[in-house]
């Protein structure tokens, strides 16, 4: 029983990180109808930003998390304006090729700039853990989890209550009609992309404290993020959050209780992806 609780805790904690990545991806897709294959690379760059701020300025990741988020949001703005915008009207194949190409370029640039060595930020809380009965809870992961929850709630409030949030939702539901409301959809695209890449940057920053950052780290996460986004319904923020949680816990259960589960856990996201695409292509929570 203690073990079972530990397993659920493990899965829950990791799901916060999943949500940070997946929600940005789903938001960008929802508003722009563009699948950002370079999303994992924005995460990677966020990780390196935190890492270098730590190495060069001794800045604690708790502070540089926010800087990474802002830097990546800014970078997202530039990428959106210069690269994504020109292909918005193009076929989705062109868009996929563009973002995919961007992913490869960013990976290689990172490799050239920082080598392919694994790096991580070491702080006292990186591997510190709390003891609750027999259950161990990593302080850093717990922090990331709560940060993710707070951010998701914040994002929910922004989308629900603010004018900008309504604009984003309107554009995602009907871009043409949104323009009739006087909405500048290019501006909406930029905002959505910047929020998405900002969240990815934050996820990368978080990853650099509890795991490792390397040029292809995004690849490890992006497939899961896709599975989550499809699982939760393309473009649905709430769906993505819930799907992150379900995937995180399922992976953890499979990894622990299925014999040889370490290999199977990784397959969970793909299995989910395929099953959902076959049986519920609009996502599991759609009515």
């Amino acid at each position: 029983m203690e073990n079972f609780i530990q397993v659920v805790v493990n899965g829950t904690l990791i799901s916060g990180l999943y949500a940070l990545i997946a929600v940005g991806l789903t938001l960008i897709f929802g508003v722009m109808r563009v699948i950002n294959f370079a999303h994992g690379e924005f995460m990677m760059l966020g990780g390196y930003t935190t890492y270098w701020l730590f190495v060069l300025l001794r800045l604690d990741p708790l502070l540089s998390l926010l800087i990474s988020m802002v830097v990546l949001a800014g970078l997202g703005l530039i990428v959106q304006r210069c690269l994504i915008n020109p292909v918005l009207g193009a076929s989705s194949l062109n868009q996929i090729l563009l973002t995919f190409g961007l992913a490869i370029i960013l990976q290689n640039v990172a490799m050239i700039l920082w080598t392919s060595d694994y790096v991580s930020v070491q702080t006292w809380y990186s591997t510190h853990s709390l003891r609750v009965g027999f259950v161990r809870i990593s302080v850093a992961k717990l922090g990331i989890f709560f940060m993710a929850i707070i951010l998701m709630m914040l994002l929910g409030i922004i989308l629900k209550k603010t004018e900008t949030g309504k604009v984003l939702r309107a554009v995602s539901q009907d871009p043409q009609t949104a323009q009739l409301m006087g909405i500048d959809i290019n501006r909406a695209y930029m905002i959505a992309f910047a929020i998405g890449t900002g969240l990815a940057g934050l996820a990368g920053a978080a990853t650099s404290t509890v795991m490792s950052i390397f040029p292809t780290v995004g690849v490890e996460f992006i497939m899961k993020a896709f599975a989550i986004v499809v699982f939760g319904g393309l473009g649905s923020v709430a769906g993505a959050c819930l799907a992150s949680f379900i995937l995180g816990v399922t992976e953890s259960l499979v990894g622990t209780y299925v014999p040889g589960g370490g290999g199977w856990a990784e397959a969970v996201s793909f299995t989910v992806l395929i099953l959902v695409l076959i049986f519920r292509p609009k996502g599991i929570f759609s009515s």
Partner: peptide
Amino acid sequence: FEPFKSGSFDYAPLITKLKA
């Protein structure tokens, strides 16, 4: 005698299993 996927980023399930 447990396999794992190389390059995973979460080994908590494996460790939990061994710890048990």
